[in-house]
Design a protein around this nucleic acid. Sequence first.
DNA 1: CCTGCTCGTATCGTATGACTTTATCGCAGA
DNA 2: TCTGCGATAAAGTCATACGATACGAGCAGG
Lengths: 259, 259
Amino acid sequence: MRVRDYSRPTTLNPDRLFGQVAQKLAVAIITGAVKAGELLPNEDDLRSEISVSRTAYREAVKILTAKGLVEARPKSGTRAAPRDSWNLLDPDVLSWHFEADPNEKFIRDLFELRHFVEPSAARLAALRRTPADIARIEAAFRGMTENPPYADTTIRADLAFHEAIFAAAQNSTLQCLASVVTATIQWTLLLKSVDDRDFFVASLVDHEHILNAIIQRDGDLAAARMAGLVIDSLNATLTFLGDAVTLANLKIAKIKHTK
Amino acid sequence: MRVRDYSRPTTLNPDRLFGQVAQKLAVAIITGAVKAGELLPNEDDLRSEISVSRTAYREAVKILTAKGLVEARPKSGTRAAPRDSWNLLDPDVLSWHFEADPNEKFIRDLFELRHFVEPSAARLAALRRTPADIARIEAAFRGMTENPPYADTTIRADLAFHEAIFAAAQNSTLQCLASVVTATIQWTLLLKSVDDRDFFVASLVDHEHILNAIIQRDGDLAAARMAGLVIDSLNATLTFLGDAVTLANLKIAKIKHTK
DNA sequence: CCTGCTCGTATCGTATGACTTTATCGCAGA
DNA sequence: TCTGCGATAAAGTCATACGATACGAGCAGG
């Protein structure tokens, strides 16, 4: 899929071997290429894909185990785990989903969760923000206005805007959900009708309103406007999601966009 | 701390060597015994604690890396990561916190997040529940009423009650936050004034109200009553949290309780 | 023919030693 | 003082070996 991944490098150094193996296996599980049955036999995998040692393979499996994607039992083998035991909120698991065909239910679930959480985060941010928080949010907003609509720096600024709001909420556990928000934003960028200037401008206005509400310490307003922004994003995303979306469509869309 | 851990065995087979090492290291990081600096040198740890091979040690480190607790860089060493890069919502990370002194800010954060999320989950459950969901929630509720107040089975039923509600909400990503709820419940049991019959009875009534609201498909009511239950839990928990709580106090409290 | 026991095999867990890669730090030279 | 190169330390990778055990196949007995 080769989606530009804006998430900071968390676990999987893509240049490290075990990270590559982990991602490869993870994608195989997420796409459903490997169901909830046996994993590709150790040695077969080693031999066919890239010849890696048992060490690298096992460390990759340990990473997947830690994220709930596989269950290794002493002698029965290493099986892919059922979906409801995956740590779907793990940043790596979220980003691995970009390598698979878009799953409409999953994306809807993500937006639903975001819709529950991010307005609350905005409310807290309005009530608790420090001057430093304001500065950080404003800086991110400036990054969105001073760069071309869908440029790389603009997108990063957008993600930084939302992360800064979560940080301003001063709740360490809530902050872990910022990765859910950034994931939905990336899904929107990927799925919505491309080069949509109107959407961009409207989104910019939404962001400004949120920023102002936070500056004014108006928690309810910040929450309401954040909720509105989430709804708008979801709608923009769903324009594409209605049809059966596959990697093939997406590639076509991206090609159209670039040329 | 030796808290009875009610979370289902996720990653860390406690009988497996790498799991023990991972937990030991994780607790050292969470308690702050290891700051955001170097980890205990590889060989030292191997030699002093339990002599484990490099294999086991490295696999433990990989688990911690996957959960964001440590960052391993080729030459600079394996350092404990700053707290804001931990996956605090990971079930294992949550349960490892029970091995450390209670951190009031952290527990408040957990409750705050729960207060944002669980009422929404209850609302969705009321709107989307299937007959099977109802049966599951009812079974859990019966488990709470038909057993002695703070018995093991009762506590498990309590946790099952909340998990069943999340399941009924039919949102895979939301469901991952059920572990946050179960963690707060365990913190409550650990911290509140023990053998508090009044609290138990009141809690039982709250649970019944929530169950009825879900049966009646009244989303708003279910959400409101769930919010109330969360607030009550928090208050019961904070009666103890006001003072400086240490493992020592807790042990005393538990001893008092048992004799 | 069916049941049950035993043994072999596959696979994970653990251990060990050696070699490679990479990034940091310090030294030397400009 | 600044620059750059090399020594070095730690993680990463590989190969190999052995132990333990769950599962299944095959054999023996009813």
